[in-house]
Nucleic acid binder design. Sequence first.
DNA 1: TAGTGGTCTAGACCACTAT
DNA 2: TAGTGGTCTAGACCACTAA
Lengths: 262, 262
Amino acid sequence: MNSATSNSSGNAAPGASAGVASSASPTFSPLYQQIKALITQSLQSGEWKPGELIPSEVELAARFKVSQGTVRKAIDELSAENLVVRRQGKGTFVATHHEERAHYRFLRLMPDAGEPRQAESRVVEVKRLRAPAEVARMLELKGGDSVIMIKRVQSFEGVPAILEEIWLPGALFRGLTAERLIEYKGPMYGLFETEFGTRMIRATERVKAVSTEAAVGELLAVASGTPLLSVERVSFTYGDKPVEVRRGLYRTDSHHYQNELS
Amino acid sequence: MNSATSNSSGNAAPGASAGVASSASPTFSPLYQQIKALITQSLQSGEWKPGELIPSEVELAARFKVSQGTVRKAIDELSAENLVVRRQGKGTFVATHHEERAHYRFLRLMPDAGEPRQAESRVVEVKRLRAPAEVARMLELKGGDSVIMIKRVQSFEGVPAILEEIWLPGALFRGLTAERLIEYKGPMYGLFETEFGTRMIRATERVKAVSTEAAVGELLAVASGTPLLSVERVSFTYGDKPVEVRRGLYRTDSHHYQNELS
DNA sequence: TAGTGGTCTAGACCACTAT
DNA sequence: TAGTGGTCTAGACCACTAA
């Protein structure tokens, strides 16, 4: 028994095995990448839901007919991408937005001094309409497709700080109403995740400095012309599919947008 | 030979071995973390300089008396932190700011449309002075310590876009002159790295929207009161030691601050 | 061809969590 | 005590680079 490989029992040619990427094909990828893709599919399909325990590494290794080390490397990457959370002694869990941990991953506005506070949210408007060209482009929708627009103001200790418009594809968020939004406690991405089966994975943001316009000034309680941070976010689910456009205006007189470069 | 561990030859108790973290001590960390720390020390001390090849995994494994897999895991993390760059078939290299790759890691201002352009830099002022309280605090200096302040304007295709003040600890940048800065081609962090042996590793930024003041307006060719992005950066070297404070004002009329949330 | 990083396996033991 | 993730080893082969 010469340890591994060299055919016979243990290993196989790279690109084969795992029941995937069969034979004559120009697409070769490492086994662990294939396993990672398979696990991601199960996450996406809802076989394992957010917050739930996924099968143990040993089980997955058996299922996919690979070694535990290979499954491990696949899960390592999923964990690094925050799709999954490992807990020693307990198992590996599907990541969820219903957690203290996740709350600040997508909230970059921090107080200049002191601890972060919980934001209070006030929904100003919810409506359905045909997607404006710009939004349609960013959500990869057709021109006439229906979208939902939510406008809300978030405050810290009674002081308004964020005004944002949130645009969602109508097809994905059928039953979404103003009432549901208002009564819901917790992060909006948590609502999206549990009620609409759409889990936000990552986002890109474009930040600019703009001048307060009259209508905005009222909602944020600042004078016209005051500089505001404009943050345009596009959020993605599995498969890099865009599922949200968020246009925010942030007051930065006592808060700042925090970023780590590494 | 029962494969590994259980004393005798291969393994040892965790926290021991590798010539580190000797015996009776309450600090236990995985072997690969100790190896990582040792490699980091060699990087910091300049045993291997930016751009250079470090010893192969096999060599390091022999030097530290651990398996190649353990060295590998250590280097994996260093690579993820951008301290080191792996190149298959060639070896592992110390990361450097003299590379196309690194240029955009710390430059977040992107054109709203089109390809990123090379910025032209114009040094406005260089002076030495006693650190102002705020700067001293951020650089972890004593009140009276000397600092260097560089003021410069960066333009894209002739249009000024960035005005920044760069504050450096005087002790670390002894020979730094305006002439040297002006004649130097390439990224400023490259200069810091090769001429002063100070390599910037990571940074944190605080972004706000502010209103253009008169003196600033002239340098950036915008009217007073125009909204600008204020970006305050603190940069760190090895050991989380702060080595630079950078206060930038960005025009965002045709550029934006780009960020990825993941 | 030799050397490097990259993948994969198999197996052992450790640390932590539950029962 | 059993099960889970976390660490570590040893060894094989692959993909890529350069002499």
